[in-house]
Design a protein around this nucleic acid. Sequence first.
DNA 1: GTTTTTTCTTACCCGTGGGTAAGATATCAG
DNA 2: CTGATATCTTACCCACGGGTAAGAAAAAAC
Lengths: 234, 234
Amino acid sequence: MKDAASPSHWKAFTSRRRDPATKREAVLQTAAQLFLEKSYGRTSLNDVAERLNITKPALYHYFRNKEEILLECYRLGTGLIAEILNDIATHCGTGLEKVEAFIYAYANVMTVNFGRCVMRLDEGDLSSDALVEVRAYKRKIDRRLRSFIQEGIADGSITECDPKIAAFSIAGAVNWICQWYEPEGALSAEEIAAQFARTLTQGLAARGRTRPLTVLSRARKQAGPWHQERSNDR
Amino acid sequence: MKDAASPSHWKAFTSRRRDPATKREAVLQTAAQLFLEKSYGRTSLNDVAERLNITKPALYHYFRNKEEILLECYRLGTGLIAEILNDIATHCGTGLEKVEAFIYAYANVMTVNFGRCVMRLDEGDLSSDALVEVRAYKRKIDRRLRSFIQEGIADGSITECDPKIAAFSIAGAVNWICQWYEPEGALSAEEIAAQFARTLTQGLAARGRTRPLTVLSRARKQAGPWHQERSNDR
DNA sequence: GTTTTTTCTTACCCGTGGGTAAGATATCAG
DNA sequence: CTGATATCTTACCCACGGGTAAGAAAAAAC
């Protein structure tokens, strides 16, 4: 789960050797990057081709049309999320611990190109068929998070609250990351993920209950206690 | 702070009487609505004109170009936010109370068309000049929220935390509302605002300190204790 | 009424960008 | 080396949409 800074995937097209798999992925990587930089609508296929040092029609060898590129970005992103979701569900632990693990992993995904695409790009650019597919994925995510919260309420690790609103709050906070996160920014992905997991779960934790140290909590070694910012924000 | 369901502002153009002010606003209202329905990029000026029962060039009587319409939507939206921001700053109270009031008012703004535009529309559609203007507004909002949190930490109403991360969390959760809120949906604007203010501040409140009943808390009468959803979500 | 000004329409221009046709050039199998 | 196949390019089509020119029609001023 790590992106090179500016991978320059055009290298995949320097040779004309037949290797559709890696070339296809190179297209997706640069497309995703451009979609995030300029939005899908303002990114022309010429832009994508130019960055790969090829011409527009060459792209049509790997994708039927522009929308298929977009949809594939969504699929790769939702795939990443589905992965972490399954990992956590099988993990044993209290509901609160699952929520914490979810936030940590999910926040990390929101700093990876394909992951960012899922929540940052405009669904309206998808065809109606693709839209229902993507929406199904998103609904699944929301359902899972809500079920973790309900579990937590049942086992006493999470304070009484409306699971729907709580899930919306958490999802919103984490989804919003992909709107302001910048790979070269002051805050690293791990930092963000760790702090969000801490801050958001602390709001859910049942009162009077000393928060147990989870695997996550132990793993993260903070640079200092709440380092006051000195970085030029934004 | 209340939008009619589908105001049909085309009535403003039934007569040819000279009344630029209301006609201009009618354009903005329908434009904002369309921008939210289909995004700025996919909304053509013909779409806007059609809904107003006029033709495209007529719009150029009230706006220099398409972008000016967009910018005006942003300005009206940020104006709404600036208003509540000043109200709260002058209000006396603990930092936590200010944060709660902020969330409540801000969440409400996120359910009003112009308010939604500010956080939902793509900044990339703005010219560079307009972009710096809008970004300045947004930064101001973030700064204010962060200062409220810092106040709360100083006066002991908010638990020790990193104000930057906390502000990002809250702003994210509330900003995300404009992504899923639907005027005709199951949750009313007031409900959302009230529940978010409660849920999010409860995460910040200093432990061991009984939360004082704010004006807000008293005003809201809950339908039932955490009504389990029966509504078809989404 | 007549003139002046605002308001709005019909008709058009043209840049942009998705997508295609047809052919050139490299790669690979034999 | 030769033919077959995959790869990529040049040249083009055309729908869409922002924006403009020029003038008609209604309101207001007098």
